[in-house]
Nucleic acid binder design. Structure first.
Length: 352
DNA sequence: AATACGATCAACCGCCCTAAA
DNA sequence: CTTTAGGGCGGTTGATCGTAT
């Protein structure tokens, strides 16, 4: 076990791939598919091991790879996914079309970690660093590479030990309220379906993730932030329209439903500092302002167009400023939500 | 211009899981 | 049931590039 037999063979090339090698591999796979990777090098005329060929294909030659820098939306999504999945790069990559686990891992280690620390957030726990420090004597949070979800035992321990603290863990406090999961999400690809075999739309657990996924719908931002400072009196949520909608741009848990932006239609203005987005632009869902939350399964919230959505977003007041200490909006909503979180967390912990 | 240093990224290593023999 | 081989994954390394001194 362990090392592959091919790795023992000498005369195999290692290191960077030449353009000629790339071409051979690309041609072979394009024509024949990869089939058994161990036979690929021989068939393609390469002095490489099958593993090396597989890696080169997956990380570089695959035609569906997205090139270029990560967008702020992608980075935000990675942070959110990492908060739940830990260093499960392949699972995170599965939620970012065109990106590889290696790419994401590199980005995390070289860039995102640093950014989080600069903002006072521990990249391993996704908690404010001060809180992490506070926890150190009691928890082994000093494991630099283990997130709470990085192993079954750790994960379960984490959840069972901290039943009242999930909002924090899942980034639901204002400080960490950074959810961008909706950005590239369809109902199929949203976080609730990301946890293997456990969370599906319509079940209790799904509702929790759905809430997290959607509290900050990804939005196009106004060209400047002035509109985010509208007064509370401008709050226009009660005028939002309701309609049944089956589009995949809506995440539907069978209970609540939230708009999920299509990444291709999500326009972040070039000069806009994504990190300075005001909460009022995020927290505009009825869940937070409470009054329009309905539990009827058939009722969904729909904005007819992105323009309309933007218009409403720009007129929304910041619910955080209305209830600084009631992070989850109305007491009713908060209560339901925290209960869901607790139940979900136990279920999640037990499932891994 | 030369050097040092940090950041980035491609690729390898080693382990685990699973299916087949 | 055990062994073996292949595929997959996360961690790590080392080469390269860009920037500062």
């Amino acid at each position: 076990m362990g090392r592959h037999s091919c790795c023992y063979k000498q005369k195999l090339r290692k290191g960077l791939w030449s353009p000629e090698e790339d071409e051979k591999l690309l041609n072979h796979i394009t024509i024949h598919g990869h089939g058994c990777w161990s036979s690929v090098p021989k068939l393609a005329g390469l002095q490489r091991c099958g593993k090396s060929c597989r890696l080169r294909w997956i990380n570089y030659l695959r035609p569906d790879l997205k090139r270029g820098a990560f967008s702020p939306e992608e980075e935000s999504l990675i942070v959110e996914l990492h908060a739940v999945l830990g260093n499960r790069w392949s699972q995170i990559a599965a939620r970012l079309p065109g990106r590889t686990d290696n790419e994401i891992k590199n980005l995390w280690n070289s860039s995102i970690k640093k950014k989080l620390r600069q903002r006072g957030i521990d990249p391993n726990t996704h908690k404010p660093i001060s809180e992490v420090d506070k926890d150190k004597p009691t928890r082994s949070s000093n494991n630099d590479h283990k997130s709470p979800s990085s192993s079954a035992a750790t994960n379960q321990d984490f959840f069972l030990e901290r039943p009242s603290d999930f909002s924090d863990y899942f980034g639901l406090q204002k400080l960490n309220f950074n959810s961008n999961l909706g950005l590239s999400a369809t109902p199929e690809s949203s976080l609730c379906t990301m946890i293997p075999g456990q969370f599906s739309p319509g079940n209790m657990v799904g509702s929790v993730f759905q809430t997290q996924v959607c509290v900050k719908p990804s939005i196009s931002l106004p060209p400047d932030s002035s509109s985010s400072t509208v007064s509370r009196g401008d709050h226009a949520a009660s005028n939002w329209e309701f309609q049944t909608n089956n589009t995949s741009n809506f995440f539907d848990n069978g209970g609540f439903s939230w708009p999920i932006a299509n990444p291709s239609s999500s326009v972040v203005k070039p000069n806009h500092n994504f990190e300075e987005v005001k909460w009022s632009e995020y927290l505009n869902t009825p869940f937070f302002n409470g009054s329009t939350v309905q539990s009827q399964n058939s009722q969904q919230i729909c904005i007819k167009s992105e323009a309309e959505y933007l218009a409403k977003v720009s007129n929304m007041a910041d619910p955080w400023s209305q209830s600084q200490n009631e992070n989850l909006g109305t007491p009713e909503a908060s209560d339901v939500f925290s209960k869901d979180l607790q139940r979900m967390a136990v279920s999640f912990g037990q499932s891994l």
